[in-house]
Design a protein around this nucleic acid. Sequence first.
DNA 1: ATCCAGGTCTGTT
DNA 2: AACAGACATGGA
Length: 278
Amino acid sequence: MLLVVDDSFLLTDILECGQAFRYERLGEEEYFVIAGGKRLHVKQVGYEVFMSCTDEEFDDFWEEYFDVRTDYTTIQKDLAKIEPKIKDLISAKRGIRILRQDPFEMLITFIISQNKSMVHIKQLVKGICEKYGEKREDEFGFYYSFPTPEALKAVSMDEFRMMKVGFRDKYLFDAVGKVTSGSIDLNALKDMSTEVAREQLTSIKGIGNKVADCILLFGYHKLDVFPVDVWTRRGLTKLYFENEKVTDDALREKAYDVFGQLCGIAQQYIFFGTISKT
DNA sequence: ATCCAGGTCTGTT
DNA sequence: AACAGACATGGA
């Protein structure tokens, strides 16, 4: 399958900007990506993106996954007009797109993410997939799907701890329990307002506003959230609060004030731009 | 060796 | 309401 793109699509920016963790870099703009229980070999040369899937598989899954139908070029122009100060950040990372990933995978992944570096998150998620996911085979060899809620239902806190997740063991246990018992219906969050959905997610032990916002942004494509972590905090502070100390809430409100319904996308340029400068 | 990571929880002013 | 420390683990 061949997809022709423009400047608003670059594999490196999309996959390595901190939203996805189940990818493997094979070479220059060449990756394996695992999502939806399938593995994709994908390679970009200029504006041509070669994917190891049929046209039908692309239509059914990968087109949506890569958010191909959203016009990021226009969004970038809008954001740059709203805030000229982030023009350079945007153009440096203009290939970013917000993937439409699986909510349960985002839930588990971003619980793990707290107080951890991106490389380490990747390792931990990989370990959990290899232990509790399904082993599958394609033309390139074996790979593992992300475990289903059912597959994680029987996992004890000690078993999570053996996966090296540290103190997050109890958080994962609580999250899986709430999902499999039906006390939280991940599918229903789609139709809820961002505020109500966030309340649902933060009722899980170990999920605060930041992790909830990442789940909403990457798992539900709710673009009106602005996850505040150490990096976006640095980025935003530099932009608006130099030498002041501000709370996370104040930062979030400022971001929504400035960028409105698109603040989630602005956040990704600011996050990846800031982290890349260090 | 010490610091820090896509934070959150708990207990104290 | 605001603040400090604790918390597991591994890479730099």
